[in-house]
Write a protein that binds this DNA or RNA. Structure first.
Lengths: 337, 337
DNA sequence: CGAAGGTACTTAACCGGAAAAGTACCTCTC
DNA sequence: GAGAGGTACTTTTCCGGTTAAGTACCTTCG
């Protein structure tokens, strides 16, 4: 089955290719009557614009790029990315834009990928996640003048637009709550130390501890897997000066930590309080249900995609703040023994 | 920054566009010396082929399409799709192909999307998941002559190549194991009833029950969410003739079921055995760790992507069977009380 | 020595749209 | 009734590659 082109429409309608192009793009230069006839024929023969031809004439690629630099095993279980993607999808598909997704193994591959996508004019813009310190992607995308939005910030974003939430406030809120319950030693099982948002949380955690007179010195960094979360929990709970509450950087690790507590004979929340960062359905499915820092991740993705579309559309694009995660107390937080 | 084109290279090298094209595509017609010089210049100025221009000249789009017709809330927590995607990615990125991902809300949108991708020449092929009875996608893709691979089968696939595993064998293996432990009434919390693989599992479940003299009549269909899994479990366990073992169609629901058992005062596995379909890290993170049907989902995705690339390359493409899920006994299966 | 054949190119057409520039005809206005 | 201005087109060029067809030069061989 051959794909119909505007030449086919022009032949049928007895007009020129140019007239068809004007009619199909809703631009002046054709009479309403002719326009209608052309649209009817296009509809009838099932014409679709060839994206390659459009792109060649300088039009948009109608796709945006997302490179995920995380090990595949984490992507499979971290609900964050899928929720982010599904939120982005809602906005993008409404705008007729597709999402180019590629998992990359290392930072250099990711840089090369952006160069390629840009050179090949495959995407109109990119979304960056997992910002790192001195992230070379910021410089590259700025240099290429490829529209980009960072999911994260507000530091380290250069002059790129970004969508961020005040994670420090969420950390402070959580530590204050635990301190109010009476906890005096709070541990933290953190994510990848090279990620900027881990630094933000680290700093806020230390500051909140100092401010409230709570020991927040016990921090272990992990790769977000349940395995490392379990291991970190075991390490903390084996310490004679073990924490009475632990804040986890994702819910997978919090669930793993919950299991370790059981395994070590500690009752949750009587002996140990647990707070998860990110509140996927997983949190409500385990017993006791996890106290969690809730944020609307699909909305976060949607806002990022919308901002990127604005930037692609030529608007300046600034930093956008979305509500910070709120503590949702459930069954894993209580006063310490 | 302007993207360099072959015209730029030609100007620098003092040759024609045609010569540059031959050199860059490793085709005869240029001397080794000139070819080398052209390649060096291309490298130096960072030239990348404009995919739109290539596609316009009939070349491949170097992208394959995946439309996911599932509610966003499920995609966020179902590890299956992310694992499948990450497996596909490995093969695709090695072949220089990108993945176009779009979440669709209903079947008609999905059909329209394939038409659009095809008409716009955006993709070289598509991967279909979640095959349904009399699935209209099979007919459409066949009609459009768009290379496609179905993840699923072996029935209902028409003449399309497909990658499948013998799910019936996995069901039989599980029911036999539970029967051998002494269970005489086994429930099943199934997935979406309109999916073909749900039918396959349903049929195998009924047959295995009949063969082994086990009551397998209690089946409840759900949408794969933890909520519905919990609800189905509550319904089953409230029945005076409650099952002593339950097989779940995904691990999210199995975890939810585990919680419901606790909540209803039933010990697992003493009072109730639980088996999860699909073995994400989640299964090993809960207490007790879940007995699960393990399959290598990334490998499944990789095989599908590889098959699609073969079909795009012009090979005939047949049905490919991958190993069926194997039972991994852990802490949630034991003889009945 | 001249025709045949090969090499290493160049030229030009083509893919399918977008859009600038050109044209024919009609209407309005002074 | 002539010039200005607008409408509804057509013609042409362009985007950046690929590729068929053409050409200039060199080698080889009867």
């Amino acid at each position: 089955m051959r794909r119909p082109t505007i030449a086919d429409i022009a032949r049928r309608a007895g007009v020129s290719k140019g007239a068809v192009s004007y009619a199909l793009n809703n631009r002046p230069g054709v009479s309403p009557h002719t326009r209608e006839r052309i649209l009817a024929i296009a509809e009838e023969i099932g014409w679709r614009p060839n994206s390659a031809a459009r792109a060649l004439s300088g039009a948009a690629a109608n796709a945006i790029g997302l490179a995920l630099h995380r090990p595949a095993k984490i992507l499979g279980i971290e609900p964050f990315f899928m929720e982010l993607v599904s939120g982005m999808e809602g906005v993008l598909s409404a705008a007729g834009s597709a999402l180019m997704l590629q998992v990359v193994g290392d930072a250099d591959t990711e840089l090369a990928l952006y160069r390629r996508w840009w050179g090949e004019r495959r995407i109109d813009g990119a979304i960056l996640t997992d910002l790192r310190t001195d992230d070379p992607r910021v410089g590259l995308l700025t240099e290429l003048a490829l529209p980009a939005v960072i999911v994260g910030g507000p530091t380290g974003v250069g002059s790129l637009p970004h969508v961020w939430s005040d994670e420090a406030a969420a950390v402070t809120e959580t530590v204050s709550y635990l301190a109010a319950l009476g906890h005096r030693r709070i541990g933290r099982v953190a994510g990848l130390p090279e990620l900027l948002h881990t630094h933000h949380r680290d700093a806020a955690f230390a500051t909140a501890g100092a401010t409230l007179g709570v020991d927040t010195s016990m921090v272990i960094w992990t790769d977000y897997t349940g395995d490392e979360g379990a291991h970190a929990t075991r390490t903390m709970l084996s310490n004679p000066a073990r924490p009475t509450a632990i804040l986890y950087d994702n819910d997978i690790m919090a669930v793993a930590g919950l299991s370790v507590a059981h395994e070590m004979g500690l009752a949750v929340p009587t002996d140990l309080s647990i707070v998860a960062w990110d509140d996927s359905p997983l949190c409500q499915v385990v017993r006791p249900p996890l106290t969690a820092l809730t944020r609307d991740i699909p909305a976060y993705g949607a806002r990022s995609a919308a901002l990127l579309l604005e930037v692609i559309g030529g608007e300046p694009g600034a930093g956008v703040e979305v509500p910070h995660p709120r503590l949702t107390p459930r069954g894993t937080t209580a006063p310490p023994p």
